[in-house]
Design a protein around this nucleic acid. Structure first.
Lengths: 248, 248
DNA sequence: CGATGACTTGACTGCTGTCAACGTGCGTGG
DNA sequence: CCACGCACGTTGACAGCAGTCAAGTCATCG
C-alpha cells in the first residue's frame, strides 16, 4: 500500500533511496534530524548510537503506552499516529507524524511510554537510545540544544492542537488540519496542494474531536465550495487562500 | 485579595514566609524547583543566576505572546494562567499553574514567547535566565536532566488536556479538573478536599472548552448530587471517590 | 468476484452554546 | 462602617451544531 504523497514519485532527486542508506551521513540533509548540524567526528559518534531504518508495516506499533521507555525515534519515511487512551478505553489521537518528525519525547520524564505510536503505512524510523543520546550530549552540547528545541516544538504542537479544538468550529478545524499538512509536506519537498491522507476518516475525526460522519460531510462541503477536491484519500487543494480564510 | 488555598493558613510550618527568602537555599524543599536536588557549590551557582521572588499583582502579565524570550519561571506562590490567542483574537487557556510549576518552556524553541502568562492573584515567581541556565547546565548535567524532565512533563500535561477535551463530556471534564487540582494541591501540602478556585468561571469554561454558563450549571449539578459543595470560589469535595467515578 | 471494511449521506436527537434576566458578592468611596 | 455599583455568577428558554443511528455505496483484497 503506497500512501506517501504522490508527488514524491515525481521528485526522486531530493528523496534518497531510503532503505539503502543505513547511516546519517547522507541523510541529514533531507531530514530535520538531530544529526543535521553535525559534521566530522561528532556525526560519526552520533551515527554510531543510532539504529537505522527500522521498518514498520501498516498498523504496527512503534511503541505502546506502558512499554519500557528506552528510545526516541525520528521518522525517515512514511507516517504514524500517536495516541493516548483514557480509563474507559476511548482513544485520543494526539498527532500525525511524518518524515523528519521526532516522536516519544513525552516518555523522557518517566520509565514507560505514556502514549502509543502506530504506523499509518509502511514506515521507516531511526531509533535513538535515549540514555546514550544524553551521554553523547554531555560531550556535544549541540545535541542538548536540539533536544530542547524538539521538545519545545512538541509543546507548541500540543498547544496549537488545544487551540484548534478549543476555539474553532468543526469545519475550521478540518480546514486548518489540511493547511497544516500542506505546509508540512511542502517543507519536506512534497507538493503543498496535492497529497494523500494516509489516515482514516475516523482518525481525522478523532484528532479533530469530531465524528467520522461529520468529517465526511465537511469534506463534501469544502469540495462543494470549490476549495478542495476529494478523491478518496487523495486531497487536492484548489483554493489555498480561500481555505485559509475559511480556517480563520 | 487572598485566593490561595484556605488551608495554607493552617499549615504555616511547611510554608516558609515567601517574601523574606531571597535565595534558593531554604526554598528548594518546598518547591519542586530545579534547585531541589542541588547542594553546595552547585546550589550556590544556581542560586546566583536566579532573580528571586518577583511580585505580580492580580491580572498582571508575567510575559505576553510576542515578547522576547529570555527566561523561564518557577512559581513560588500564587497562581497564573497560560493562554494563547488565535488569529481572530479568541483566547484559549492552556493551563493553570501553581506553586512549584515551571512556565514558559514553550518559548525555548524560538526567540519570542508564543503564549501569555497572567497572574490570577498576587503571585511570586523566580526568574531563570534561560541562556545562563544552559551555560550552567553544561557544567552541571543534572540541570539538563531536570529541564528535560520538566519539558516532558509539560508535553504530558498538554496531552492530558487534549484527552480531557477530546474524549469526555462537559461534566466529566469539570470533575476531572477538580480532581486534578485537588491532587496538585495535596502534593504541595494543602488540603485535597477544600480549596479556592482562583480563576473565574469563564476561565474554567475556556480551559474546558465549555461556556461559562455550562460550567456554572455543572457546579450546581455536582453539588446537587452531593459530590461537592460550592461556596463561590471555594470548593469542597464531599465525595472524592464518587467524583472520580463521575469523571471516568 | 464476493466479502469486508471504509466512506458517504440522510434522519433524528440531544448536548451545549447563545441570549437574556436575575442574583450575589466584593471593593470602592462616601 | 455601610451603601452602592459593577463585575461575576446563576438560572431559564431556546436554538443549532454536531453526535448517533441507520442505510446504502464504494473500494480493496484475498
Amino acid at each position: 500500500m503506497r500512501t506517501a504523497p504522490v508527488i514524491s514519485q515525481k521528485k526522486p532527486l531530493v528523496l534518497p533511496t531510503i532503505h539503502s542508506q543505513k547511516n546519517c551521513h547522507n541523510c541529514s540533509k533531507v531530514n530535520a534530524c538531530f544529526a543535521h548540524s553535525l559534521v566530522g567526528q561528532e556525526l560519526d559518534a552520533f551515527n554510531s548510537i543510532i539504529k537505522h531504518s527500522i521498518k514498520l508495516n501498516r498498523s504496527e506499533y512503534l511503541y505502546q503506552a506502558g512499554d519500557k521507555f528506552n528510545s526516541i525515534y525520528v521518522i525517515r519515511s512514511g507516517s504514524l499516529k500517536t495516541l493516548i487512551d483514557d480509563e474507559e478505553g476511548r482513544e485520543q489521537i494526539l498527532g500525525f507524524s511524518i518524515q523528519g518528525d521526532v516522536v516519544a519525547l513525552d516518555g523522557a520524564a518517566s520509565n514507560v511510554y505514556p502514549t502509543t505510536a502506530q504506523a499509518l503505512e509502511t514506515t521507516y524510523v531511526c531509533e535513538i537510545p535515549f540514555a546514550r543520546y544524553i551521554e553523547l550530549a554531555a560531550e556535544i552540547p549541540e545535541l542538548y540544544k536540539q533536544l530542547l528545541t524538539q521538545m519545545s516544538h512538541q509543546i507548541r504542537h500540543e498547544e496549537e492542537h488545544t487551540l484548534l479544538i478549543g476555539t474553532k468550529s468543526a469545519e475550521q478545524r478540518l480546514a486548518t488540519l489540511l493547511l497544516n499538512l500542506s505546509k508540512r509536506y511542502a517543507a519536506r519537498g512534497f507538493s503543498k496542494n496535492k497529497f494523500n491522507l494516509n489516515m482514516s476518516r475516523r482518525d481525522i475525526g478523532n484528532y479533530l474531536s469530531a465524528a467520522m460522519e461529520t468529517v465526511s460531510r465537511l469534506f463534501s462541503r469544502l469540495q462543494a465550495k470549490g476549495l478542495i477536491k476529494v478523491h478518496g484519500k487523495l486531497i487536492e487543494i484548489k483554493d489555498h487562500d480561500g481555505l485559509e480564510k475559511y480556517a480563520a
